[in-house]
Simulated scan of single mutants.
Amino acid sequence: MADNYIPLRVNRDFGDIITTYFDFFKQNIKKFTNVFLSYNGIFLVSLLIASYLLVSGFIGLIAYESAPNNFATGAQLEEKYMIYLAAGGILFFVIFIMVLVLNYALASSYMIKYESTENNEFDKKEVWAYTKSQFGNILVFILLMIPIWFVFFIVSIIFAFIPIVGLFVQYILQFFLTSWLGVSFYDMLQNKKGVTDGLGEGWNLVTKNFWKSVGVNFILGLLIGILMMITLIIPGVLIGVYTFHVVENNVDYSTSVVSTVIYTLGTCLFLIIAVYGQCLSQFVNGILYYSLHEKTYNINTRIKIEQIGKSE
């Protein structure tokens, strides 16, 4: 075992889980980023194309609507921008689902390989091979997440009509759902179970440790969100300054190549950071999963006791 390996199968309390997450993050951020970029290349290019279509559609429609003689230009130009917008939206939705499936699995497989090898010296191809070996279950699981989140959305709307209390209930349900699905996904991949078995075990682990699961996802979700916002400060400021320049100097952004490039890159960067943030969030549930699993089954503790018995 490597000296700097962080044991994951440990029954940790709330504070220790948060501390362990950041220790794991610091140790593995470079290696996982390499995995992320290696297997997301084609999707990142696709997101760039989708961003271009969305930006071109939005800019074109805004310019068309604000033009004093827009009726004279005919409906053909408006239809062109609507096609851009629709094509960009459809492409983005398809790519988003594919990226969600891939990176939800890559982050989980990475942590599973880390735990099984007790180091981070494994090749990135091993992470992909582990993901590919269970791709069927992964796809079914992600598809099941869609109706589950849809039901949550309906329930959230209902609770939205309840002042104050409804808001708290919404957040509790949201972080419970995040914990349940994340922990279930890890159990399914780690033990190569079926989707329903994984969901059942995840439900068992999370409901028995309800407030710890909700609290960990709330605190670390908040901190990851702040980290992502900080990451977006520089490009956000640059885009804001450029937008101010456009407005103050009456730049014709509808025909400006620079405007299209800047807004396209800004949109694409935002989407990439959002996807990467999802990976970091899944690491949270990985550490939570191993902690809850060890608390329930004491696997690592039993192994250590057996080793002590053999050495004696």
Rank of each mutant, 00 (worst) to 15 (best):
residue 7 P to R: 11
residue 9 R to W: 06
residue 38 S to M: 07
residue 42 I to L: 12
residue 43 F to I: 05
residue 46 S to M: 06
residue 47 L to E: 01
residue 52 Y to L: 06
residue 54 L to R: 02
residue 62 I to W: 10
residue 69 N to Q: 13
residue 69 N to E: 14
residue 70 N to S: 14
residue 71 F to C: 04
residue 76 Q to S: 11
residue 77 L to V: 03
residue 80 K to Q: 06
residue 87 A to D: 05
residue 89 G to R: 00
residue 90 I to L: 13
residue 95 I to H: 03
residue 101 V to R: 02
residue 102 L to E: 07
residue 105 A to C: 08
residue 115 E to P: 04
residue 115 E to R: 07
residue 120 N to R: 05
residue 122 F to N: 03
residue 136 G to C: 03
residue 142 I to Q: 09
residue 144 L to K: 07
residue 146 I to P: 11
residue 146 I to M: 13
residue 151 V to Y: 04
residue 152 F to D: 06
residue 152 F to N: 08
residue 153 F to V: 14
residue 156 S to W: 06
residue 160 A to F: 10
residue 165 V to A: 14
residue 169 V to R: 09
residue 171 Y to K: 06
residue 172 I to R: 04
residue 178 T to I: 12
residue 182 G to M: 12
residue 188 M to I: 04
residue 190 Q to S: 13
residue 200 G to W: 14
residue 202 G to R: 09
residue 210 F to T: 00
residue 216 V to S: 09
residue 218 F to V: 13
residue 223 L to Y: 10
residue 225 G to I: 03
residue 228 M to I: 07
residue 229 M to P: 04
residue 236 G to A: 03
residue 236 G to W: 02
residue 236 G to K: 04
residue 241 V to F: 13
residue 244 F to V: 15
residue 247 V to E: 12
residue 247 V to A: 14
residue 251 V to G: 09
residue 259 S to T: 15
residue 260 T to S: 08
residue 260 T to P: 00
residue 264 T to A: 01
residue 266 G to M: 05
residue 272 I to R: 01
residue 277 G to L: 02
residue 283 F to D: 06
residue 284 V to N: 01
residue 292 L to Q: 12
residue 295 K to L: 15
residue 296 T to A: 15
residue 301 T to H: 10
residue 307 Q to P: 01
residue 307 Q to I: 01
residue 307 Q to N: 08
residue 312 E to D: 00
